[in-house]
Amino acid sequence: MDMAKSLILCTALAACLTLAAAGWSQGTATFYGGPDGSDTMGGACGYDNLYNAGYGVLNAALSQTLFNDGASCGQCYLITCDGSRQGGQYCKPGTSITVSATNLCPPNYALPNGGWCGPGRPHFDMSQPAFENIGIAQAGIIPVQYQRVQCKRSGGVRFSIAGSNYFLLVNIQNLGGSGSVGAAWVKGEKTGWIQMSRNWGANWQALAGLVNQGLSFAVTSTGGQYIQFLNVAPGWWQFGQTFTNNYQNFAY
């Protein structure tokens, strides 16, 4: 039986871990944000209210190594507690959770080597509700195994608009598939396609005056899928508004 068929027939996490062992990496996890995860809203990806942006409470701040200067914003990770390593007694066996990357866990240089989120360390600072799916909160920190997985989102890709009369800043949210943006463009009613660049997190910028023009967007996901989102924002759009076409999203 080939590997693909074996994976399809997996019915238990333990079996899947055995078959896909090469796809798993070791890391660690802590939690923040309180029992309801409310303090995880906002963050270094710029998503603000994570419910409105499509991510909800099952989220995590990534260490510097995983965050990749914001290129990982929106990506999804399947995480399970690793009972075979030190601290594994605090695992909840046979459980796993998928989280979305929505924030940065920065190094703390008051601690040796920058602490758990220091350079070179793959670490997830998860919302407490996500953490408690796989580990006991009293532990504070647990060893984990993780792998990046496809994201499943509800509704279409969202475009939250900020900036000024001659500068457009767009936070691109709720991507399915690979979950993150590899490249982006914007088009006004009176312009051609304008290449955007990453400003910070999931915010993409264009040095263009597009006020009072209807806007279309084009996005290439980090999985390589290219989609044009035509006539997303009408000509009367205002800074601070978010627009979506409600159905177009990424498969990879």
Rank of each mutant, 00 (worst) to 15 (best):
R153G: 03
N212V: 06
V186I: 02
A233D: 03
A233C: 13
A208V: 12
G118W: 06
W193N: 09
V232H: 00
A233N: 01
N113V: 14
R158S: 05
S178C: 10
A139R: 13
Q195K: 13
C91M: 10
L104W: 10
Q138G: 12
A183I: 06
G201E: 13
S160R: 00
L207N: 14
N133H: 15
T95I: 11
Y166T: 14
I161L: 07
W236E: 01
A184M: 07
G135V: 10
A206M: 06
Y166K: 04
A130W: 02
A202I: 12
G163S: 07
V219P: 03
I141K: 13
R153A: 08
P119K: 15
T95S: 15
G176S: 09
G155V: 12
P129Y: 03
V149H: 03
G156Y: 03
N133S: 14
V149C: 07
T102N: 02
L230M: 15
I134M: 04
A218T: 06
A233G: 11
R153Q: 04
Q173D: 02
A101Y: 01
V181Y: 10
K187W: 11
N165A: 14
L104D: 05
L230Q: 05
I161C: 01
R158A: 03
Q225T: 08
V157T: 06
Q195W: 03
L210F: 01
S154C: 08
K152F: 10
P93Y: 06
N203D: 14
P93F: 02
F159P: 00
A130F: 08
C151F: 01
S197Y: 11
F159N: 00
V186F: 01
Q173Y: 05
Q195A: 14
P119W: 04
P93S: 07
A101T: 06
T222P: 04
F229Q: 00
A206F: 02
R158D: 00
Q128C: 13
V99N: 08
P119H: 09
C151Q: 00
S100C: 07
T220Y: 06
P129V: 04
K152N: 15
S96N: 15
G140T: 10
K92M: 14
Q205W: 08
S164N: 09
L215T: 00
V144A: 12
F217Y: 01
L230H: 07
G209S: 14
M196A: 10
Y166S: 14
A208G: 09
A184Q: 01
G179H: 03
N113W: 09
Y166P: 01
R148N: 14
F229N: 00
H123G: 10
S216D: 02
I134L: 10
P234E: 11
N212I: 03
G214N: 08
R121K: 15
A233V: 05
N165I: 08
P129M: 03
Q147I: 14
G235P: 05
G163W: 02
G235I: 04
V144S: 08
A137E: 04
G155D: 09
G209N: 07
T220W: 05
K92H: 12
G118L: 13
S127I: 09
G94D: 14
G235M: 07
M126Q: 05
Y90A: 05
S100W: 08
L210Q: 01
W185V: 02
Q225Y: 08
Y109G: 11
N199V: 11
P143Y: 12
S100I: 07
